[in-house]
């Protein structure tokens, strides 16, 4: 179920900070959808790239973080090249990733992984799992 947008949650997230991290003005986006139309990974994403921007415009970063989209984005910048408003969506995706990573949440407890399995896992997978796990 989607939450209703009200004064309590519209744009209550610090958009100025977000703009500083990403360096992009998310309000430049007018939702034409060109980014999603051209994204080679869009089919694997829970939210299409343009939906990420729209939710961010309304300050709904929690909704974005819940999905796999920012982790699927490989920053190929096809969207940026085609964006009619010059919005670099890959930087926005990165900013969302940064915000998640900066919370320093560990999603995996190393001690709970069986030692046999642990030895087989590549280190990069472990590091990724610490921070990036999405629901």
């Amino acid at each position: 179920m989607n939450n209703k947008l009200t004064l309590e949650n519209i744009q209550q997230f610090d958009l100025d900070e977000f703009q500083e991290i990403s360096g992009e003005n998310i309000f430049a986006c007018y939702q034409c959808g060109n980014c999603s139309a051209g994204c080679p990974a869009a089919d694997f994403m829970d939210l299409a790239p343009h939906e990420v921007i729209r939710l961010l415009q309304l300050g709904q970063i929690d909704e974005v973080v819940k999905t796999n989209t920012v982790w699927i984005c490989a920053a190929c910048v096809t969207c940026r090249v085609r964006c009619p408003k010059g919005v670099d969506l890959s930087k926005i995706m990165e900013a969302v990733r940064q915000i998640v990573l900066r919370k320093k949440n560990n999603y995996v407890d190393l001690n709970k992984i069986e030692s046999e399995l642990r030895e087989k896992l590549p280190q990069i997978a472990l590091v990724g799992n610490f921070r990036k796990f999405t629901l």
């Binding site: 947008l5 519209i10 939702q31 939906e51 729209r54």
Partner: peptide, 12 residues
């Protein structure tokens, strides 16, 4: 409503 996010909106 905001059809772009499929969310209803209520503003006081």
């Amino acid at each position: 409503t905001d059809t772009l996010t499929r969310r209803n909106v209520e503003i006081k």
